[in-house]
Design a protein around this nucleic acid. Structure first.
Length: 480
RNA sequence: GGGGGCGUAGCUCAGUCCGGUAGAGCAACGGUCUUUUAAACCGUUGGCCGUGGGUUCAAAUCCCACCGCCCUCACCA
């Protein structure tokens, strides 16, 4: 039983206490990262002293000698223990170790007969006793459910998982660096909204007790970032969580990380250039040759990316004419898509997503969307039925969505009212405060949203969004 | 929500088709071993076979329901 394994470890914990040691350790100054320690080795010398701290991942006992593998985030170092040639008080500590214990080790570096740089241990300091038995050492932890529920074990046991999440961190840092260098200012806007807006999605509802008011976890920060444009911040961005109360999949997590950028005096063309440059920079950091492998294909993000007009794609692949409302509804119904009382453009867009988007490999910009499905986007001056919006698609995923922002408060109100009339579109209530803000004058601007999780998926060759979110949404389950 | 798959020791997995005493490797425990690399060798322990019901003389195995996970479709500005 697992309980037996635990009991064996508790016995060793007690033994450490009897030696006067604290199995859970104290401040441990002087430890250096494992990789750094390995770098201090000087060929031919065996007197270089180092101190490291890490997790005990393997133990090979050979009579009076034993070899241990100590891991930290930077790597692995082997520890050599000769019980008969050590201070007896120190030697007495070693029999009470278990795999996964956290240890501090001091000693001198040498090279073993088989060539591995190793610490000859002089001093051992317990830092934390592991009471739970570890996953199997060779196959590691493969059960995806356990990997997601106990991500800490996944990170310990699977080095490539560590690498994926470190890369995620580097990607986000790089985005910030690039935007900061271009003069964008990072801001934080509310996560709890009285009216959910800026996207069409079902929100999570929560409640503020002392105000006795329902609040919504934000589905997008858009309407608040635009208020900042009104307020005179010309270039703002936010990287933070959005929440959408919808089904989840390999490409959707209920909470996900979105970056939104707004640039006063720009438009969707400037956002297209920004998108290309940002993603290309990230891709170059992953692969200087600009060859990004993903799901069996290879993508090159070198600008400029292909641009294709929405209507051209529709004409080519939808199988019906954009203007033929009856044919559009008939085709959608035949395809099992909802038609009902929805506006014909919304139904047509379903056809677009079903028949046109899958033909895109990318990276590609789909540009110039029908105005009817873009309530926050400025229409083209000469063609009011088309608006200045693009989506960037790669490998069947939408990774970016941007437009020339609608800044006419009267037009914006009309669009909201039209949206509200179609209950189907999911809008609950018009955000009057947002319209009021536009009434003070918002500069013409380009706005861009990039789904960070999906970009990280692309750049880490991860097929599931759960592999790039440390703690993906899971049904609650009792602790095991 | 629909369809498909999976759930057996702490971990990685056989066994299920075709019902007949619950298996292996790793880990643990006890030995041998003074430079090993998944150390090796000898021995021992460890199981509500996801949960509940049914069929049967007999169920890990067949049937039903439920729980959880994965894939897929649907939903999804």
């Amino acid at each position: 039983m697992s309980d037996d394994l635990r009991q064996a470890r508790l016995k060793k914990l007690a033994a450490l206490r009897e030696l006067g040691l604290d199995p859970y350790g104290q401040r441990f100054p002087g430890a250096i990262p494992v990789r750094e320690a390995l770098g201090l080795f000087v060929e031919g010398r065996e007197d270089v002293a180092v101190t490291v701290a890490g997790r005990l991942m393997a133990l090979r006992k050979m009579g009076k000698a034993q070899f241990a593998d100590l891991h930290d985030i930077t790597g692995k170092i082997q520890v050599y223990v000769r019980e008969d040639k050590m201070d007896p008080a120190q030697a007495a500590r070693f029999p009470h170790l278990d795999l996964y214990d956290l240890l501090g080790v001091s000693g001198t570096l040498f090279r073993t007969r088989t060539g591995e740089v190793t610490i000859a241990a002089r001093e051992l300091t317990p830092l934390a006793k592991a009471l739970n038995p570890p996953p199997e050492k060779w196959h590691g932890l493969t059960d995806v459910e356990v990997r997601y529920r106990k991500r800490y074990l996944d990170l310990i046991a699977n080095p490539e998982v560590r690498e994926t999440f470190l890369r995620r961190t580097r990607i986000i840092a790089s985005i910030r660096r690039e935007l900061d260098a271009r003069g964008f200012v990072e801001v934080e806007t509310p996560m709890m909204h009285p009216i959910p807006g800026g996207a069409a999605a079902r929100p999570f509802i929560t409640h503020h007790n002392s105000l006795d008011m329902d609040l919504y976890l934000r589905i997008a920060p858009e309407l608040y970032l635009k208020r900042l444009l009104v307020g005179g911040f010309p270039k703002v961005y936010e990287i933070n969580r959005n929440f959408r109360n919808e089904g989840f999949s390999t490409k959707h997590n209920p909470e996900f990380t979105m970056m939104e950028v707004y640039e006063a005096l720009g438009d969707y063309s400037t956002m297209m250039e920004l998108t290309e440059q940002l993603v290309a920079t990230l891709a170059r950091e992953v692969s200087p040759a600009h060859r990004i492998p993903f799901d069996g294909a290879v993508y090159d993000f070198t600008p400029p990316w292909r641009r294709v007009a929405y209507m051209d794609l529709f004409r080519e692949h939808a199988g019906v004419a954009w203007g033929d409302a009856a044919a559009i509804r008939a085709k959608a119904a035949a395809a099992g898509l909802p038609t009902g009382s929805r506006p014909v453009e919304a139904v047509a867009n379903d056809l677009f997503e079903k028949y046109c988007e899958p033909t895109l490999t990318g990276p590609v910009f789909v540009i110039d969307y029908p105005t009817a499905i873009c309530p926050l986007t400025k229409a083209k001056r000469d063609r009011p039925e088309i608006c200045e919006r693009f989506e960037a698609h790669v490998a069947g995923m939408e990774i970016a969505n941007a437009f020339t922002e609608l800044n006419d408060p009267i037009d914006q109100r009309a669009r909201f009212e039209c949206q509200l009339a179609n209950k189907d579109e999911g809008m609950a209530r018009i955000d009057e405060n947002f319209l009021d803000a536009l009434g003070y004058g918002m500069p013409p601007a380009g706005g861009l949203g990039i789904g960070i999780d999906r970009v990280v998926m692309l750049l880490t060759n991860s097929k599931s969004i759960r592999d790039v979110i440390l703690f993906p949404m899971m049904r609650e389950q009792e602790a095991s």
